[in-house]
């Protein structure tokens, strides 16, 4: 039943991504009750999640990235062909 700090760390992360089971949640809470260090980490980590949410990061899709890569590749071969000619 007793949790080590590294096990607690894993549960802290799972909690931020809402992937803890109820059982794990209780174990974690219990550990945090006795462990100051993990408790601090848990709280800081929560704040980080808040920042990440606030930043509302967008990502290019895989397809968009592939398109970029394709264009770069084409251009690159053109550029090197021209250099060869000169």
């Amino acid at each position: 039943m007793k949790l080590s700090c590294s096990e607690a760390a894993e549960l802290c992360e799972k909690a931020e991504y809402k992937e803890v089971s109820l059982r794990e949640k209780i174990k974690l809470k219990l550990h945090l009750y006795f462990c100051r260090m993990c408790k601090n980490y848990y709280q800081d980590n929560k704040k980080l999640s808040g920042l990440l949410k606030k930043a509302d990061l967008k990502a290019c899709s895989h397809q968009e990235k592939e398109n970029f890569k394709e264009k770069i590749k084409q251009e690159n071969s053109q550029v090197s062909n021209q250099q060869k000619k000169h």
Binding site: L57, K58, A59, C60, E64, K65, F68, K69, I72, N76
Partner: peptide, 15 residues
């Protein structure tokens, strides 16, 4: 390092 540009910077440039 143009081969790495997309993986490294595309998200940054996009945002």
């Amino acid at each position: 390092n143009p081969e790495k540009w997309v993986d490294r910077y595309a998200d940054y440039l996009f945002n």
